[in-house]
Amino acid sequence: MNIGAHYNYWVAIFLMMTGFYVVITHGNLIKKLIGLNLFTTSVFILYISLAKVKGGTAPIIAPGIEVYSNPLPHVLILTAIVVGVATTAVGLALVLLIYDRYGTIEEDEIRLKDDSL
């Protein structure tokens, strides 16, 4: 167990948790979504870190190259990135409509408006 071997994972974990913190503490809906983005993007770093092989290159076959990084996590994360942006788009569409019908995008103000009815 040495520190040098895992620092990449740990930084990724720190980033994930920052994103997670932003999602759960902030009441602004747009900021929540950005936090969610931060969270998922940092998970991508974890996956891509898994794929790296020391001394390897990008997995595009070229003459004279022996060691390639693992391409499978790359493929998975390509899919996950798309899922992420799709979620963001749906979330933002909801935010737009919430603003239309509540006049605010702060969670506590929205709750107040619902409860006062």
Binding site: I30, L33, I34, N37, T41, F44, I48, S49, A51, K52, V53, G56, T57, A58, P59, I60, Y68, S69, P73, H74, I77, L78, I81, V82, G84, V85, T88, A89, L92
Partner: peptide, 22 residues
Amino acid sequence: MDAVDVAFTEAAVGTGIATVLL
């Protein structure tokens, strides 16, 4: 970390589309 395709997509999506939508 050698993930050029992922980098390409992340740049196009995260920096481009997501920012524009936000």
